Amino acid sequence: MSTPRFLTLPPGVRSRRIETAVGAFAALEAIPVSGVPERRPALLVPGLTGSKEDFIAVLQTLAQSGRQVVAIDMRGQFETGGPDDRSAYTCAALGNDVDVLAQVIGHGAPVHLVGHSFGGLVTREAVIDGRTRFASYTLMSSGPAAIVGPRARAGRFMISELPEQGLEHMWHTRMEPEAMAAGVSDEIVAFLRKRLFANSVTGMFAMTEEVLSAADRCDELTQVEVPTLVLYGEHDDGWPPHMQAEMAHRLDADCVVVPGAAHSPAVEAPETTAAALIRFWNAAENPLRN
């Protein structure tokens, strides 16, 4: 579970809804405080139990590099509605949403794409399907296949308790105690509860099944010509760091390890994470990049 450190929107960041042919998506949009966006825009996609708010700490810095930056709630997440239909929450279906959103945000031109955790499994569908050309692609704290370790165990526990116990039980027995033990402020705890209960239960169940069963698609991803970055915290408790490093090697991708961060570098080390993304994006836009 990603835990935003604060919820106040910084200058240049606003809430909006993005209308597309496949529905409306809740988003946070950042633009430079002064001047106009002169570089390629970026689309940020959160993880399974996350939302657009997980990127608040990096949005202003990213936008100040001269670009529009948009973080979204995926279908069925927090403030984006979703149907009571499990097939709407497969990686392929959610990846189609990313395709459509990227085309709307970029007005047909390539955008930089970032997928965090489960969002990495979703966004790679959009990269692999070839219907949209991206300026670059970043896998943030994501992996080559199904999640492993403690977060996999948490996912299996979620699947076992959701049908019978529901969100209330999951909140009181796991999520709230974890937040309190981590010293999260009352304001953020209230937000986490609001976010959890706004999610589609069907969507959470289906997406959890997806993250626990995802196939390795690295070989397919290597066939796509797009500058790629693998970025993760040195203490990641999702996909182990060594697994993400191996994935970066297989993809012939740039690799950045964020010191001191765990599974949510944009929350835990926002300035380091934003600086790494800006360097990578600027290099990807350089026509002389090798």
Score class of each variant (00 low, 15 high):
245 A>D: 11
196 L>R: 03
144 P>Y: 07
16 R>N: 13
30 A>P: 06
143 G>L: 06
231 L>C: 13
87 S>A: 15
104 V>D: 09
142 S>G: 13
36 V>T: 11
35 G>Y: 00
41 P>A: 04
80 T>V: 08
10 P>Q: 05
181 A>L: 14
77 Q>N: 09
9 L>Q: 01
260 G>N: 07
111 V>K: 03
59 L>Q: 02
85 D>E: 11
116 H>K: 01
70 V>Q: 03
280 F>Y: 04
16 R>T: 15
246 E>V: 06
276 A>S: 11
235 H>V: 15
129 D>Y: 02
17 R>W: 11
170 M>Y: 09
253 A>F: 02
22 V>A: 14
38 E>P: 00
265 P>A: 07
107 H>I: 01
229 L>C: 10
8 T>M: 09
127 V>N: 03
72 I>F: 04
55 F>H: 03
119 G>Y: 05
245 A>T: 14
200 S>H: 06
201 V>L: 11
119 G>L: 04
19 E>D: 15
55 F>G: 02
203 G>M: 09
100 V>K: 08
278 I>W: 03
153 R>L: 12
69 V>A: 06
37 P>T: 04
13 V>Q: 05
112 H>T: 04
13 V>Y: 10
225 E>V: 12
60 Q>T: 04
111 V>L: 07
166 G>P: 05
138 T>Q: 01
238 G>S: 15
51 S>P: 06
144 P>S: 14
205 F>D: 06
224 V>N: 10
200 S>W: 05
219 D>T: 15
50 G>V: 08
241 P>S: 11
36 V>W: 00
172 H>E: 12
52 K>F: 09
209 E>N: 14
91 C>W: 14
11 P>G: 01
79 E>W: 07
271 E>D: 10
264 S>I: 10
97 D>G: 09
166 G>W: 02
74 M>P: 07
204 M>I: 15
290 N>C: 11
138 T>V: 12
107 H>G: 09
230 V>Y: 11
189 V>Q: 05
189 V>Y: 01
175 M>V: 11
83 P>G: 09
221 L>R: 11
286 N>V: 00
202 T>V: 14
73 D>M: 03
35 G>D: 00
77 Q>H: 13
105 I>W: 01
170 M>H: 01
194 K>E: 11
105 I>Y: 02
30 A>K: 06
31 I>Y: 01
272 T>V: 13
236 D>E: 11
233 G>N: 08
14 R>F: 13
211 V>K: 13
268 E>N: 00
190 A>Y: 03
238 G>V: 13
203 G>E: 10
8 T>I: 08
167 L>Y: 01
166 G>H: 03
133 R>Q: 14
48 L>W: 13
135 A>F: 05
217 R>A: 15
78 F>S: 08
72 I>E: 02
143 G>P: 05
273 T>Y: 07
